[in-house]
Amino acid sequence: MNAFLYAATVLIWGSTWLAIYFQLGEVPVNVSVFYRFALAAILLLPWLWLTGKLQKADASDHRFMILQGACLFSFNFICFYTATQYVTSGLVAVVFSLATLFNAVNNRFFWKESIPAKVVFAGVVGTSGLVLLFLPELQNSGQNGVSLDTLKGLALACLGTYFFSLGNMVSKRNSLKGLSPITTNAYGMTYGTVILALILLATQQPLVLDTRPEYLGALFYLSVFGSIVGFTTYLTLVARLGANKAAYATVMFPVVALLLSSWFEGYQWQVTSFVGLGLTMLGNVIMNSEGIARYFSKKQVAA
C-alpha cells in the first residue's frame, strides 16, 4: 500500500509543476491559486458530508485546520506559482524536494525529535546539488554576473517549501488527534480558499478567467488530481510513516518535473545539471536510507 501511495504522489505531484506553468499568463497568481482550491473544496467537502465520511472536529481542531489551510493550500502555492514566473517549473520542483531537510528541522523544533548526523550530511549534499542545478540559471551577462530574477525564484521556492513543511507538522498533529487526511484536507482547502479570497479582497484583485483549453485543463488537473488526490495520498503517508519518511516521495519529483520541463519549457540540460540533480537526489536518499533499507528487507522476506 505504501508503495502505491508513493508512486501516485510522485507521478501526480511531479507533473503538477508543469500544469502550474500552463496557468501562467493573464490570470494573476493569487487568482489562479484561488480557483484551484475553491474548485477542490467545492468538490471534496460536500461529497464527504453527503457520504457521511466527514469526521467531526472540535474548535481546537478547526483552528489547526485553518493553519493547515494557510500553510498547505494558500501561502505556499502563492510562493510556488510566483517562483515559476522567474525559473522553470522543474527547478522549482527540485527546491521542493528539500522538504525532507525542512521536515527534519521542524520535527526537532516542534516535536523534539533528534536530528541524526546523516540528516546534516544529507543536507550539505542536497544543497550542493541545488547550487549546481541553479548555476546555469544564475549566470548572467549583466554587470553583477547574477540573475536577480533567478534569485527571486529560488527564494520564493524555498519559502513555499518551508510553508509546506510547516503544514506537514500541523498535519501530523491532526493525525495524532485521530483526524483522517481526507477530512483535514477538505476543511483545510476550504479555509485556504477563504484566506485567498480575503487576500483578493484586500488587494482589490478582480477575478480574471482565462478560457483557453490549456488553462482550464490545468485548473481541473491541479484541483482534482494535484490537490484532492495528491494531498490525500501524501498526507496519508505522513500519517502512516511520519513526515520525514513521507517526504522521501519528493526524491523523484525533480526527475519527472525536469523531464516535462525539458519537453515543454525548453529547459536545457548541462553537465552541472546532471551532477546537481544527482547530488540533490543522493541527499534525499541518504536522509531516508534507513527507511529504504527496511522497505527492501521486507520485500526480500516476503519473497
Rank of each mutant, 00 (worst) to 15 (best):
I20E: 12
S227D: 05
A186R: 11
V124K: 09
L133V: 02
G266Q: 06
A3F: 15
S289F: 13
R294T: 09
F109K: 01
V285Y: 09
V10S: 08
N103T: 10
V255D: 09
Y35S: 09
L101C: 01
I286S: 03
M169K: 00
V285T: 09
S289T: 03
T16P: 00
W49T: 03
P46G: 09
W49G: 04
A117S: 12
Y187K: 15
L159T: 10
F64N: 04
A186E: 11
I115R: 08
A243K: 00
L237F: 01
I199Y: 10
K112M: 02
T161C: 08
A243N: 03
L196I: 08
A257K: 06
L39C: 12
T16Q: 09
K56L: 12
N106P: 03
A19Q: 03
Y6C: 02
A19S: 08
A247T: 08
F96D: 01
G167C: 08
C158D: 01
N185I: 14
T9S: 11
A247W: 04
V194P: 05
A3M: 12
L156R: 06
P136T: 05
C71V: 08
I195P: 10
T193Y: 09
M287D: 14
N106S: 10
P116L: 02
R294D: 03
T88M: 10
D210V: 08
F77V: 03
T211Q: 07
D58Q: 05
Q270F: 04
G160N: 09
L166G: 04
T51N: 15
F77Y: 15
D149L: 12
L179P: 05
G226S: 09
S114H: 08
T280M: 15
N288W: 04
Q300W: 13
W13A: 05
T236N: 05
F163N: 02
L279S: 03
S175R: 01
A3I: 10
Y215E: 10
K118T: 13
F163W: 13
F37H: 13
F73A: 02
A93L: 05
L132H: 03
V224M: 03
F4L: 13
T100W: 07
F96Y: 14
E137N: 13
I195T: 11
S15N: 06
S227F: 11
L282V: 11
S261E: 12
M252N: 06
T190D: 09
P213Y: 07
I286H: 05
G14N: 01
Q143C: 06
G25H: 02
A7D: 06
I12D: 12
A8S: 14
I78H: 07
L67C: 06
V27P: 06
N284P: 01
L196G: 12
P28K: 05
T82S: 12
L176H: 04
L54Y: 12
N284F: 11
L156P: 00
I182D: 05
V170I: 14
F77K: 02
L24S: 11
A239W: 14
N107R: 07
I20S: 07
Y187V: 14
I199N: 07
F231Y: 15
P136H: 02
N244P: 00
V251A: 15
L72T: 01
L101F: 13
Q205I: 10
C79T: 03
